[in-house]
Every structure is written in structure tokens, then in C-alpha cells.
């Protein structure tokens, strides 16, 4: 258990007496961390959030400056954690407390809910860090940075939810999956009204299978067209074998022909077997 000592040493080095708890922890925890950005926390509270993010990207803030930037890197898996480590290696000037356990947290909603709580909780820990760490011992504390302070976790869970890190990771994973599922549901027509994960997945599977069956069917038709029919007007203009001179004109003619077909409306019946065959022409 490692309380965020890192910030306090630099703060007390810069100006030891001019901060209160509300100045230290006034930042909005919810938005920037949720979007995966690095949330940079200013001790003076003078920067806006975008400025903070910029500074955390620049990485060359001198620590003698009064505003020391605290990096709360919120990421997802091992990849983000790797980024975090590399950042910590490269930027020794910036005191960053990498809260690795926050990686497990996903929902912005929870973060919104628990924002004030986390502020209070960390604020209460803060004086301990200040008393234990002097201003000169910054280098030793920065070595402790990659170790995640484990006390962040209990404020991230909702009431009644499990709080060990496996449960949090599992919950984050489930939320990720459900978000992707919602995006998938928007693609598939008529899938929005279905409630239930299994039913939605069934619908997705059926849709994919029907599409693959359509591809098979269309390839059968294309086989007939491609091998048998030599009387079609476009077949004559079909450059066979020479790949260099297959221009856009080929499908332009095809599109135009299809347009003509649509306007004529004299398809054979077997050409209409596909679902909404209106193809958006780009040419």
C-alpha cells in the first residue's frame, strides 16, 4: 500500500504552505480519465484541463515550477501499462503517480459517482505523505511510482460490488464487450429491439451466415455469367487476362448498365433474389 506520496513531496518543495485539500484535488476525475487520456493534475489549479493534458504530453516541465504535474494514466491492458512504464522511464522530471489499479476501472459512470469520494479519500491520505516525505527525497519516491497504490480500488466500485482486482478487471472486460456489442447491434438491421445477449448473438450469427450464403449464391451466378455467357455486351469489353488495362470504366459501364436495368425494370426474376440490391454507385 503506497499512498501517493509523490505529489506531496514536490508540492511541499515548491511551496509548502500554500495549498489546501481542495486545491490539491479539485480536478474532475471523470472525463479525461474515462477517455483514456492522461489526466494531468495541477497542484495550483491554475491550468485548465486541456492545458494539463498538453503539459503531460510535453514532459519537460521543470519541477522547480510551482505546478507539478501528476500523471494519472488510465489504461486498459498490458499495453497501456507498458506505455506507462516507458513514460515513467523517460520522464523523471514529472512526478507522476501511476495508479495501476485504476486501469481496471472502466465506467465513466462509476467514476462520476465516486469522484467526490475519491477526492476525499485521497485527500485524507495526503497529510501522511507530506509528513513522511521531505522535499529532497524526490528521486527515491519516483522509484516507487510504478507500483500502483492499491487503495484506489475501493472507491471505484459501486456499492455492493466486489472490490478485488480480479472482479474489477472482469467487470471492465464485460463492459468493454457490451459496448462493442452495442456497436455491432447498430450495424445489423432490426437488431436494436432484441433484448438479451444470447439472442443478439444469435441474430448476429444468422446475419453473417445469411451473408455468406448470399456470397455463395452470387458466386454461383457469377460462375454462370463468367463461364457461359459470351454474348453479353459487357463481356466483349471485358479485358481478359491483361491486368494493366482494367480501368474504372469497366465498372462504370457495369453501373450504368445496372442503372439502365433498373430504369427498364425488366429483370429476370432470379436476379431479384437478394435483399436490397440498391448499390450506391460511386462513379
Amino acid at each position: 500500500m503506497d499512498p501517493p506520496l509523490v505529489n506531496d513531496s514536490s508540492f511541499s518543495a515548491a511551496n509548502p504552505s500554500s495549498y489546501t485539500l481542495s486545491e490539491i484535488w479539485p480536478f474532475p476525475v471523470n472525463d479525461a480519465v474515462r477517455s483514456g487520456l492522461r489526466l494531468a493534475v495541477n497542484s495550483g489549479g491554475a491550468f485548465s484541463r486541456s492545458e494539463l493534458v498538453e503539459h503531460s504530453g510535453n514532459k519537460d516541465i521543470s519541477p522547480a515550477e510551482e505546478s507539478t504535474v501528476t500523471d494519472l494514466t488510465a489504461g486498459w491492458g498490458g499495453r497501456k501499462t507498458r506505455d506507462l512504464n516507458s513514460e515513467d522511464d523517460s520522464s523523471k522530471m514529472v512526478s507522476s503517480s501511476s495508479s495501476g489499479n485504476e486501469l481496471k476501472e472502466s465506467g465513466g459512470k462509476k467514476r462520476k459517482i465516486c469522484g467526490s469520494e475519491s477526492g476525499n479519500g485521497d485527500g485524507s491520505m495526503r497529510p501522511e505523505g507530506e509528513t513522511s516525505s521531505g522535499g529532497g527525497s524526490k528521486a527515491t519516491e519516483q522509484k516507487n511510482k510504478p507500483e500502483p497504490p492499491k487503495d484506489y480500488i475501493h472507491v471505484r466500485a459501486r456499492r455492493g460490488q466486489a472490490t478485488d482486482r480480479h472482479s474489477l478487471a472482469e467487470r471492465a472486460r464485460r463492459e468493454k464487450i457490451s459496448e462493442k456489442m452495442t456497436a455491432l447491434q447498430d450495424i445489423i438491421p432490426g437488431c436494436n429491439k432484441i433484448i438479451g445477449k444470447a439472442l443478439v448473438l444469435d441474430e448476429i450469427i444468422n446475419y453473417i451466415q445469411s451473408l455468406q450464403r448470399q456470397v455463395e449464391f452470387l458466386s454461383m451466378k457469377l460462375e454462370v455469367v463468367n463461364s457461359g455467357a459470351s454474348t453479353g455486351p459487357t463481356i466483349g469489353g471485358f479485358p481478359s487476362g491483361d491486368l494493366g488495362i482494367l480501368p474504372i470504366d469497366v465498372h462504370r459501364t457495369i453501373y450504368e448498365q445496372q442503372e439502365a436495368n433498373e430504369s427498364r425494370g425488366s429483370h429476370p426474376e432470379w436476379l431479384h433474389m437478394q435483399v436490397d440490391g440498391n448499390f450506391n454507385r460511386t462513379t
Binding site: Y207, I208, K221, F238, H251, I254, L271, G277, F279
Partner: peptide
């Protein structure tokens, strides 16, 4: 993949319509 399959089906339909003899 679903998006690409839809695109594929539409293009193939278009090709069949365009190349088929009338």
C-alpha cells in the same frame, strides 16, 4: 467483417446484374 460482407454482396449483385446477358 459484417460491413465488408454487406459491401461484397452488393458489389457482387451489381456485377451479376451488369454482366448477365439480357
Amino acid at each position: 467483417y459484417i460491413k465488408c460482407l454487406c459491401m461484397q454482396v452488393k458489389v457482387m449483385q451489381c456485377l451479376v446484374d451488369g454482366l448477365s446477358p439480357k
